[in-house]
Design a protein around this nucleic acid. Structure first.
Lengths: 256, 256
DNA sequence: GCCGCAAATATTGGCGCCAATTTTGTGACT
DNA sequence: AGTCACAAAATTGGCGCCAATATTTGCGGC
């Protein structure tokens, strides 16, 4: 790479004409099974915020090598889904209380705009998709917690899809995930992420092309979600085991 | 990690109590000099969409090893600033025409919301920051193209900052960069990214707490930007060098 | 002289190994 | 008994090497 000779009439390579990268396999790292696995595990709340994601463990679990794991974790860290700390490892991202509020505020902005656009450009195919989803959500098994979580997330994604803006769709996906983390971090135990009745209402309003109504319903729905979380004061530093053992101790004292 | 033995009274390690990763150096990969270098090179349009980012070249240029380059490129690929193609390498991302339009639409949504929030929560410090930036932008050297580009980008970032939502700020940063790429891909040569007079107007309206006016001005400003780009039909496949040499040939014919 | 095929070259991808750092466990000392 | 210091183990970080793939160059045939 060093240009020792100042001039050379015939350079070995005449201005390397790198071909433009059109028409090539656009497969992204998002399709990586490790990324997908961690993502669904998080959105289904099988991985809690703060959980350690050891490279060797994951490599063994996914039956692959540490390099793929590193790539996947780096990608997820770029998307703020995991947090990487030098020489310490990767952890499921745990948003701060302020960040959680910012996430909900961003969703309010983006998803109301998405609903509005979805109503504007709703067509035959869109109506069909929406109806199909609403039916699936109506008759799903409410006892299957993991399926429920997946379905409720899919509704919001579907609305973003109907808006017809891929950039907005990516942002919605990212915000959905970060919402999962925010809720998992600050939720009161036992409550669902979405109130179960809100989605049919919003869907019906979209199908009726009631733009103002649908936007209002979506905003209300998100505000309702936001009101379900509460800041945990001070307790942040206490690690999970302490809380567990405190509870066990209290139960033991009460029971005997 | 295989649990061959069903029960073990004293496991070698008693439930590894990994400490929660609080209070640790939150330095991100965004601070990496390679990432920053490529980012500023792109936002200053010294790197054009489609440009090849060879790992060895970059490693030599930045005086580091290939591993750091790979990490930086992976991160930038996660943020859709570069495009990585297996076994081909990394290229500066070139958005499609549809994606470019989606980016502007997303900016319309997010930045109007940001302006609105900025007006709402404008305080003494915010006013000072805004005034300071407007002065800098007013008396900057208009012939220094690179400084101009940096300053105009900073205005939009500042507005997002004043909105007080970090998530929205990140999104704005990302959209700014992708706008640079969209404009660089589809611009008519020679035109600036932002119309030079729009920023003082918007800034003044924010300072006057005229929310509706500021929002309208920002929306208009972004729409104006959007109208400066045009789809290029067919020409996409033509090699850059071909275009350059065609121009040189035409100039030679005209000159002699 | 031009096109197609094949060797050569350059570039990226991946694995193993070892260094650096952190975390855990043990023991001595106050 | 508690705390500090030190050593051992585990985990992440990084470098060099080699394989896999793409691109360029060179050659021969048409």
């Amino acid at each position: 790479m060093k240009r020792t000779r100042p001039l050379k009439r015939k350079p070995k390579r005449s201005e390397p004409k790198h071909r433009e990268p059109e028409a090539v396999d656009p497969r992204s790292i998002d399709d990586d099974p490790v990324v997908q696995g961690i993502l669904t595990a998080i959105s289904q709340k099988r991985l809690k915020p703060g959980a350690k994601l050891g490279e060797d463990k994951l490599a063994a679990a996914f039956g692959t090598t540490r390099i793929h794991i590193r790539q996947a974790l780096s990608h997820l860290a770029s998307r703020k889904v995991v947090m990487q700390i030098p020489n310490r490892g990767a952890f499921v991202y745990r948003p701060s209380w302020e960040e959680a509020q910012d996430i909900f505020a961003a969703r309010r902005i983006i998803e109301t705009a998405a609903v509005s656009a979805a109503v504007d450009r709703l067509d035959k195919a869109g109506k069909a998709e929406l109806k199909a989803h609403m039916e699936r959500e109506a008759r799903h098994d409410r006892n299957d917690r993991w399926a429920s979580l997946s379905l409720t997330a899919e509704f919001h994604i579907l609305v973003a899809k109907l808006a017809g803006n891929r950039v907005l769709l990516e942002m919605s996906r990212e915000l959905m995930l970060r919402t999962s983390l925010a809720i998992a971090t600050f939720e009161q135990p036992g409550e669902p992420d979405c109130s179960p009745d809100a989605h049919p209402d919003i869907g019906a309003l979209i199908l009726a092309r009631d733009k103002a109504g649908a936007v209002h319903a979506m905003r209300h729905h998100i505000e309702e979600m936001e009101q379900r979380i509460r800041p945990r004061d001070g307790e942040d530093e206490v690690d999970e085991l302490t809380a567990i053992f405190q509870e066990i101790g209290a139960r033991a004292r009460a029971g005997g």
